[in-house]
Nucleic acid binder design. Sequence first.
DNA 1: TCTTGTATTGTAACCGATTGCATTAACTTG
DNA 2: CAAGTTAATGCAATCGGTTACAATACAAGA
Lengths: 342, 342
Amino acid sequence: MEKEITIYDLAKILALSPATVSRALNDHPAINAKTKVLIAEKAAELGYRSNTFASHLRTRKTNTLGVIVPRLNSNFMSTVLAGMEEVANNFGYNLLINQSLESELKERSNAKTMFNSRVDGLLVSVAYDTDSFEHFSTFITRNIPVLFFDRIMSHPQCGAVIIDNEQAGYDATRHLLDQGCRRIMHVTGDLRRNVYADRLEGFKRAIAGQNLPLDNRLILSTDLSQEAGRIIADQIDQMVEKPDGLFIANDLCAAICMQALKDKGYAIPEDIAIVGFNNDPVSQVVSPQLTTVFYPGYQMGKTAMTTMIGQLNGTKLIDNSEPIILRSELIIRRSSIRLEKS
Amino acid sequence: MEKEITIYDLAKILALSPATVSRALNDHPAINAKTKVLIAEKAAELGYRSNTFASHLRTRKTNTLGVIVPRLNSNFMSTVLAGMEEVANNFGYNLLINQSLESELKERSNAKTMFNSRVDGLLVSVAYDTDSFEHFSTFITRNIPVLFFDRIMSHPQCGAVIIDNEQAGYDATRHLLDQGCRRIMHVTGDLRRNVYADRLEGFKRAIAGQNLPLDNRLILSTDLSQEAGRIIADQIDQMVEKPDGLFIANDLCAAICMQALKDKGYAIPEDIAIVGFNNDPVSQVVSPQLTTVFYPGYQMGKTAMTTMIGQLNGTKLIDNSEPIILRSELIIRRSSIRLEKS
DNA sequence: TCTTGTATTGTAACCGATTGCATTAACTTG
DNA sequence: CAAGTTAATGCAATCGGTTACAATACAAGA
């Protein structure tokens, strides 16, 4: 077990004061350039590494950012995290990642952990059932920036990075309408979450735009799980007036549902045209390939992180009045094409 | 901005010494039970939170574990991480997660970051091209436990958690043989990685077991990407002696390849039977559904983390001489069934 | 009564980097 | 050459817990 080198060791060896060593290592302007080089070389030679705890204790900054996500094991989330990690890494920030497992209770406990770990900032995509903002207000009062992404909570002091879910929902539905669907079912998640509520709004706007009636029996709020996909297929099979179009707010759920429908003998897209959401890898692998909405996960992670770090550095103030909106895009594949291009 | 409460504040208010407060909060046996209650109540009332940096500075422990993975955005890895996170959370450990992006260079830099962050332990699944152990030996010399999972490096002082890849490779291949395949192609990853090398060994053993010749042209080392899946389909299409079985060491790659083959008019499994690996969600969604090897990712994450924490607590010493082997299992689906069950 | 033991609490020195406030040396300038 | 600048470095307090080593109080035993 080698001994850990401190600035005191360096100071003694070089016949300098710890203060000078500290300043030199932090590139303080008052220190002579030659001295800096001298110290830097010695530090490298002896394998000195700064004790971040001593530093954090003194400076009250941790260079650590907290990230709370509903689940780690979803393609979308892990892509977002990959983007975040890349940026954070570049700026010398560490990431403390927790998952809420879609439970507000766990989310609260995560937030508490983060708080006690004194993260410099917090990035959150909220759980399915989160109602309260309370566990985040601790951060606000302590002036620790909180930034939401994807599943956001509106708060005057918190930034947000999202896509235009309303528009995406509109586009998806409009596409189905354009393909001749007249009875479109929309399967969505918990409507307390902006992502689902907004997509539903877009869905409604598109329906209304064609002067079609809105049938509330065609709007299903589920947990968007694989199991839900199977259940939906069963339900559709038992309906008297079956839908001719299906807009499901999640690709995996949509793919499973499509498969179940095919097993029951429905032709996709002829009997029922289907659109998913997220552009998950599964969407390219099912047959027919699934029309979906491309969701810029990686970009979202990078943007959220850049924004957060910008605010921490004071480089760029977050304009919290308006969320940052990223481009999403409808990707049309065979699962929904009922008309040849004219 | 509220003022932060310290043990000194608590001590002053309760007319005690900081030492007593510190001990009480850590449930030290020498402190009177009533005093503990008193202190705990006051601490809760004033919203005291321990300053972890002061604590870490003194104790030289960080309660933080580093995790380095090739990529965050793969279903398998995020599942493993989910398992790790759950256990770590239960034991009060934080996770510092980095991705190497399959590059040894980045992995080195990750390791350095972890080292400087003074993680108490390190869990690693190595990158595609990692050759050197050097960036981990820093940890070993400082007595910081390093545990590999999935993609491991053999080292006398490092634990490992894996599945029996050789057996899994054997089972997969044997299954194809049992289905009547006589010319099986194996698509694998970088053979420096145990997971791929071992599966190949299993493949070879199965082939040899049937007294079939080993055709090296039927063993392809790729990056197992989606693109690779397409390329493989092209290659097969141009081969004179085409394979009648295909064992691909990754589900997504296999699914894409299957799709490309279907597009070219091959019947799956009649012309070519296919087996993937990992039991990724895509395997259930392609048609025909993909035979694959169930990989206990969540379990692996939990086991690795439990083992690590056990070692740190001294509860349980890692027996580093033998890796921990988890059960994997062949899941037979339609992509490989050529014979009716007799 | 005096000693010894036990239970609790206190004192003070750390851990290692940072930084406001000197201090010293060298250099200008009138 | 004295006074004022400027550049470079040092001193010492500080951040907030932790813990070895007392110290104190009270009870039991000799």
